[in-house]
Design a protein around this nucleic acid. Structure first.
Lengths: 214, 214
DNA sequence: AGATTTTGACTGGTCTGTCAATCAAAAACG
DNA sequence: CGTTTTTGATTGACAGACCAGTCAAAATCT
């Protein structure tokens, strides 16, 4: 977060450090003010820097926003892939890991959720969204569909893998949206419970309201 | 849609007609350009009018957007309540009606979905969203939770009514988001099939992939 | 000293909201 | 019924504010 205002920050920092700092400030500003009122001056002030620096490091506002979205997409991808890797080979455990991943406290913060929502809401940024997230989204979809397919087969459940996978995915997205738009007090636990209820409906012998059945 | 540009529109029209016309143009503009790039001039041009008229009829841009959201919220509420009324007293039929309602071609248009998304994404408009939609959302939630409760009991299903209801609701929202953000070609039928798959998972003796079981 | 980062004033452009003038329909009048 | 007046919708030019991007100068580092 901002160590702004009263800081004797080292004047010169590595390019990457400054860029990361500005991107983080962009996420915060998107969350706090929304896409429409996110100005370079506001981003710079949140980072405790002057607005000229934004153009120095990113050339244009568009590139700043583009790289912000790229960062969000990349950290999202790394997160679920890490969870998946730790889950082993069992499809039920893999699915449980994927569901947990999206509620990891590093990913599922108010600021990041709001920032995502800002990008979704901005029609202008939809081609940008496709460019930055299309490949990742496709990989995620293929992955969760594959896992659901295995689990359906293993548990002799009925259902179309692609549709079950899509329900799980959009339920997560819908819960995310809920966490942003509804009045405060929607905890990560409640979000997880909702998605686990959904998983339990499709895979009652593998999931319950509390999550994966051991 | 716009009969703009080449029109010999009657010069004087009723206040309400013009206001409705401008609100419709606002929805289109939000969908096409996003919240951030929605300007009064653009709205007016879409409506085939001069931009001075917007301020004449709505005073400020903020009020225009506020009334646009109010219209969306109201037509949404009227729609699901009408579906519900036609459904009779059976909870399964009521739930089927609620699910269908959100994919009614009058509600579920690209422009309207995008406009909703614009409002969700704009942090600034979140208090406005609560003010305009909070009561409606609460009524909807209470309604679908009640119906799910009845259906759970009637069918001797297991599950928490509030959570089942929330899964269904956020799945609809998630599908809506999908229909906007993913590359084209996501039909209403596919959306309905997804939500029906979800309902079938919770209520397998009442719903199947094709919808309500007769 | 030379290289690089950082600042903040400045510019050109865009947007919102205002307003005086215009215009068409309705009302009042002869 | 034709003419004039009134009403109120409509227009487009304009002012004030704000913002992205530029740049010369300053600060800092090597």
């Amino acid at each position: 977060m901002t160590q702004a205002q009263t800081d004797p920050q080292p004047r010169k920092m590595s390019r990457d450090t400054r860029r990361a700092q500005l991107i983080e400030a962009t996420i915060e500003t998107l969350a706090l003010r929304g896409y429409a009122r996110t100005t370079l001056t506001e981003v710079a002030r949140t980072a405790g820097l002057s607005h000229g620096l934004v153009n120095f490091h990113f050339d244009t506002k568009e590139k700043l926003l583009s790289e912000t979205l790229a960062l969000l997409a990349e950290e999202y991808r790394l997160n679920w892939q890490a969870y998946l890797e730790r889950a082993g080979a069992d499809p039920a455990a893999q699915l449980a890991a994927l569901l947990l991943a999206d509620f990891d406290p590093a990913i599922c913060t108010p600021a990041r959720l709001s920032a995502w929502c800002s990008f979704w809401g901005e029609a202008q940024s939809r081609p940008l969204y496709q460019a930055q997230c299309g490949a990742n989204d496709a990989a995620y979809n293929a992955c969760i569909a594959e896992i659901c397919g295995q689990l359906l087969e293993q548990g002799r459940y009925e259902g179309d893998p692609a549709r079950v996978a899509r329900v799980l995915r959009v339920t997560i997205q819908g819960v995310w949206l809920d966490m942003i738009t509804t009045t405060p007090d929607y905890t990560i636990e409640e979000g997880l419970a909702t998605i686990h209820a959904c998983a339990a409906a499709f895979f009652p012998r593998h999931f319950c309201a509390a999550g994966l059945i051991p």
